[in-house]
Nucleic acid binder design. Structure first.
Lengths: 202, 202
DNA sequence: GCATATATCTTGGCAGTGTCAAGATTGGGG
DNA sequence: CCCCAATCTTGACACTGCCAAGATATATGC
């Protein structure tokens, strides 16, 4: 009935999964629904992903790679920025990326996904962390928050950007806070995370 | 077989659910497993909660109430603190509470839960937000971050504390950051969120 | 060109899940 | 004492992820 050899089923499963998550959340994702949507038998996706958790892990890995490269592109466009300014740019880009990639971001921050994840995800995550850590190191040499260690600053910077993005993308939270995110809000928030009093805001 | 009229089944279901989430995450929670664990028929929990999502919503509501009152208790122990210091205390208490209530916190921050939630959750959340907003208002009168509006500061403060707590409770993240959370880390992180340069650190 | 080998997909089935309907049991108030 | 409302059981349904066995299509070797 359904024709064999879909061609690039693996990629289509990934795309369809993200679309489905966009509409109804990670919980609303079903491999069987994806299969039906793509006109393929219910077990076909299972041949490309070891399990549903594996599919989600692949999405998380890809998403971290995407986020990291998005940040690096932004940074590359401002070659004469110092470390503190770069750090602020990264925070802004990270929040903006999360808001315009809600589905991916919700999978990344889903506490359940990190439970069954694998080395590929760990690698992508640690590359992301490394990029931020480098900027923090340079910023610190410029006098950024001298009272705190690099390790604590890492937790602070990544946690703050991550959490603010979460708040902005969560319907319930953003409703409770009564905030509409304008484009200028990203700048203000990035300026709050990376304080602007020490240097000219970039 | 299983005896009728368990007595306080509703509460036991809540407790057992949290225990189960502690061990295997929200995804590992199963109403049927809970029922079996409590020696009760598989549909019994359904008579106390309209759905699984409803059970999770109840947990979220309770958890926000718990977090709010924990923060208020801490604040009440320091009656002579100013707004900025109170805000810092709240951040510290919030992060500490999240780390010692990982299961509850993981449900609160689960993006899927906020999808099907109800008015009771909204009320508990908005009370939590209100408490923080009040401290921010007072802090602002004391000169706290005058360049930002109260609305933006709300997103910043709640988002940052929330996100840092998430990072600290997420095994994958905290492993990537290579951080062990000592007791003094909470102070340092709270001092970073609510900058200490304007007043004496509380 | 053809047979074989490998990758890809289908079919069928299993155990587990949440949810509903209908009936059984219990305890308390009239 | 009896009935009623609350509570729980039983049985069923549709859905889920996953696995094994077989079918099909593409690629490879000769």
């Amino acid at each position: 009935m359904a024709k064999y050899h879909h061609g690039n089923l693996r990629q289509e499963v990934l795309d369809c999964a993200i679309e489905m998550i966009t509409e109804s959340g990670v919980e609303g994702l079903s491999l069987r629904k994806v299969a039906k949507e793509l006109g393929v038998s219910h077990a076909a996706p299972g041949h490309h992903f070891k399990s549903k958790a594996d599919l989600l892990a692949v999405i998380v890995r890809e998403s971290y790679d995407l986020l990291t490269s998005t940040m690096l592109e932004e940074v590359a466009q401002h070659p004469d920025a110092n470390g503190t300014q770069r750090l602020r740019m990264m925070g802004r880009t990270c929040m903006r990326w999360a808001v315009s990639n809600k589905a991916r971001f919700s999978v990344m921050t889903n506490p359940d996904v990190s439970r069954f994840t694998e080395d590929a995800v760990r690698a992508a995550l640690s590359e992301f962390v490394g990029v931020v850590a480098e900027a923090i190191g340079e910023a610190k040499e410029e006098g950024f928050y001298p009272q705190a260690s690099v390790a604590v600053l890492l937790v602070y910077a990544i946690g703050a950007a991550n959490g603010i993005a979460t708040v902005l993308t969560d319907d319930l939270m953003s409703a409770a806070l009564g905030v509409d995110v304008g484009e200028e809000a990203f700048d203000q928030l990035a300026n709050l995370i990376v304080d602007t009093r020490d240097d000219t805001a970039g």
